[in-house]
Amino acid sequence: MVIRMIKIKNLNAGYGKLQILFDINAKVEKGKITTVVGPNGSGKSTFLKTLFGLTKIYSGEIIFNNKNIAHVPPHQKARMKIAYLPQTNNVFADLTVEENLKIAGYVLDKDKVKERIEIALNIFPELKNILKRKAGTLSGGQRQFLAMGMALVRDAEVLMLDEPTAQLSPKLAEVIFGKIVEMRDEFGLTILLVEQNAKRALEISDNGYMFVSGKVAFEGTAEELLNHEKFKEYSLGITAL
């Protein structure tokens, strides 16, 4: 039997009066990678933001560890072992790499932060040489490593990653996908992934959701999604509902 980590029920959300997500039902299973794919503007990022409490929720429930956390403010969610990596602006440009990693462990105690930073640096050794640099001066790849490293420092059980491979070279993207798999297999993390590179992402995933125009168009195991008749059409972003 699978253990459900997060269950989303009839979720309606958006920005102010502008509704983006319509009646979303979904679940994220423990220790697995669940991937959300869909055309540009279909509401994937909004979905992650909503789970983290950064948008307006009109109705619906987000059940996490048997509790509805739909209306818990974001800074408290950070204490519930959920980490979120935004699509853009995911590091503090004015802070050094080291400060960024430290701030990622804001809710942890001092010793724990040290320990987690060690772990993160072991997975992303690229960061070791640039600890004193300002994050604003990093290259795209370095910045993405830092953002992922920060997510690791959080000591979370659930990682929500919004397009971690965006704007990276295919080679670098491969590295990132490898690290994501590593996080699941070595650390048993639960991962909710949003990806533009739908095919590649689903290949490493367990389950998947296809979002179109703010609704779940279809869902299933990663394999089922990949073989869905409409998969190509939607993931190329040609059609909207």
Partner: peptide, 10 residues
């Protein structure tokens, strides 16, 4: 610098 990112850090 980035209040909403800061929030996600707790």
């Amino acid at each position: 610098e980035n209040p909403s990112l800061a929030q996600t850090m707790g």
